[in-house]
């Protein structure tokens, strides 16, 4: 079958899934919605505005015509104009999404590294104090609402200490020219060290908050898979070969235990991005979370729907990437025909 065939098959599935989710949002917004025109235009819209919205979204046409235009609009990334921001929604997303991606990828990398390490550590120290500490900590981070994590960090590390409590960078500094959209990267490209430093410092708290939220997913799965793998005969074979315990645990066992971790990467991403809705709100970080909370507060429905679609597509894509990564790591998936 090979990696290519596998990838093509997975990619095809992902495309189907994306079309499906877009149709689902259509059903929700055009069919389930009690009064689609009102929803799209916002509760305080005037009659003329509502007329315009009906025309724009073809709300007077039969549902399949509506669906047709909806799909066309979505896949040409034409999400209309935001009634609140007064800008094309795609422009808004183009501006805000990279900032959130920057935040989320940093947070995810942190979670994965820490999660893998603490999970492996807990497994290697099963039922000893280190294990209990790790498990207690992930129970706590799992149960604590994201906004409380953010508030605690803000209160103790910002108000009581030195880190900035919010914003993406010192507001006195001008934003770097958008090249990639990732503002720290743009500052770096521009050689704007002052801004780069400021944005890094401002990233610390939101990144830690987000990493803490999804910390439990990775640690938990890493710990249990490591526990399983440490009992397997192939780890024992490695030990019996005389490669030494460190190599047996941190090469043979760790690599095998990472497989289940790969399968939850997309879940972690979904979790982080949902978390950033709340986290960005608290840290006044103007990314996608800000866009979503603003559109919620101001009944800016087109922006909300477009953001949802774009985020969901990203989740599906990340899932695809994780699946491919999975196949690269595990020959049983890539080459097929496994007996297990």
């Amino acid at each position: 079958m090979g990696l290519l065939g596998y990838t093509v098959r997975r990619a095809f599935n992902s495309v189907l899934l994306i079309v499906g989710t877009v149709i689902l949002t259509f059903v929700l917004t055009h069919i389930v919605a009690p009064n689609p025109a009102h929803v799209w235009a916002g509760p305080h819209a005037s009659a003329t505005v509502i007329q315009g919205v009906i025309k724009r979204y073809h709300l007077d046409a039969p549902w399949y015509v509506q669906l047709y235009y909806y799909l066309i609009d979505t896949f040409t990334l034409d999400f209309g104009v935001s009634p609140y921001f007064g800008q094309p929604v795609s422009t808004l997303i183009e501006t805000f999404y990279p900032r959130t991606l920057e935040l989320d990828f940093l947070a995810m990398s942190l979670t994965i590294v820490i999660g893998v390490f603490t999970g492996a550590f807990a497994a290697a120290h099963q039922d000893r104090i280190g294990d209990h500490a790790v498990r207690g900590f992930y129970l706590l981070t799992w149960s604590i609402p994201p906004f409380l994590v953010a508030i605690i960090l803000q209160y103790f590390l910002a108000y009581k200490w030195i880190l900035p409590p919010g914003q993406m960078a010192d507001p006195a500094l001008a934003l770097p020219k958008p090249i990639t959209g990732l503002i720290t990267v743009d500052a770096l490209i521009e050689g704007n060290w002052v801004f780069f430093y400021s944005s890094l410092v401002h990233l610390i708290l939101p990144v830690i908050a987000l990493a803490l939220i999804s910390f439990g997913i990775i640690t938990r799965i890493m710990r249990s898979s490591m526990l399983d793998v440490l009992k397997t005969d192939y780890v024992r074979t490695a030990i019996m070969k005389g490669v030494g315990n460190r190599r047996a645990v941190y090469l043979h066992a760790l690599k095998n235990s990472l497989i289940p971790v790969i399968t939850v990467i997309a879940l972690t991403f979904a979790y982080t991005i949902a978390g950033s809705v709340v986290i960005e709100d608290i840290f006044s970080y103007t990314g996608m979370g800000y866009l979503i909370t603003q559109s919620l507060e101001n009944f800016d429905y087109p922006t909300l729907i477009a953001s949802t679609i774009v985020i969901t597509i990203s989740v599906v894509v990340i899932n695809l990437v994780a699946d491919i990564l999975y196949a690269i790591v595990d020959p049983r998936v890539r080459l097929g025909g496994g007996q297990s």
Binding site: D233, Y234, M240, K241, G242, N245, H252, N256
Partner: peptide, 24 residues
């Protein structure tokens, strides 16, 4: 003990499908 494992003492396990690292 690890110094003895391998060149002095070695073990073959019951289930051949489980005794080799699937990723190598």
């Amino acid at each position: 003990i690890n110094r003895l494992r391998g060149t002095e003492i070695f073990m073959i396990f019951q289930d051949p499908f489980l005794s080799l690292n699937p990723l190598m």
